[in-house]
């Protein structure tokens, strides 16, 4: 499976800013339907591709036309992996809030916010760079080939 064409690196950065704001609002209000919506946004980016990801669409329609075009491109695979990591945390958070286990909801949302904030403020993609760390805690599926 190809991850899709490389993208303008400012798109994911914009998406990270929006994600940070959304998750911050979720934490303060505890309004889980918003977190559910963010979970869907993560899912689209991770599993359907960045072209369809809502915040990327928003970037292309609203932001990109106002910026100077850039020839810089960023690979899609790391970004989609990071979206998948975000999806897991947002999903756990939604389940936590919706089922009344608010502490779980808060903790999972905080983790997702932490990663989104690092990406927005420092351009550091936690999900991308921590792939090896993630693999360490997942059972090995294929070892020999």
């Amino acid at each position: 499976m190809s991850a899709g064409p490389a993208v303008d690196p400012r798109g994911p950065r914009f998406a990270a800013v929006v994600t940070t704001v959304v998750l911050a609002v979720v934490l303060v209000t505890g309004w889980w339907p918003l977190l559910a919506a963010q979970t869907v946004v993560f899912a689209i980016g991770a599993f359907a591709g960045l072209r369809l990801a809502p915040y990327s669409v928003l970037y292309r329609v609203l932001v990109a036309p106002r910026l100077k075009p850039t020839s810089e491109r960023e690979d899609a695979a790391p970004l989609r992996f990071a979206q998948a990591v975000g999806f897991v945390f947002a999903l756990v958070g939604t389940i936590g809030y919706a089922s009344g286990v608010t502490a779980l909801g808060i903790v999972a949302t905080a983790f997702a916010l932490f990663a989104a904030f690092l990406n927005a403020a420092f351009d550091f993609c936690l999900g991308c760079e921590m792939y090896l760390l993630v693999r360490r805690f997942t059972p090995r599926t294929e070892q020999t080939s």
Partner: peptide, 23 residues
């Protein structure tokens, strides 16, 4: 929930700042 969430939000952002600067 509101005030707890607010504290967690502040804590997360501070932690993010510290880790971001270190990284």
């Amino acid at each position: 929930t509101g005030s707890t969430g607010l504290w967690v939000l502040a804590g997360t952002l501070v932690a993010g700042l510290v880790v971001g600067v270190l990284l």
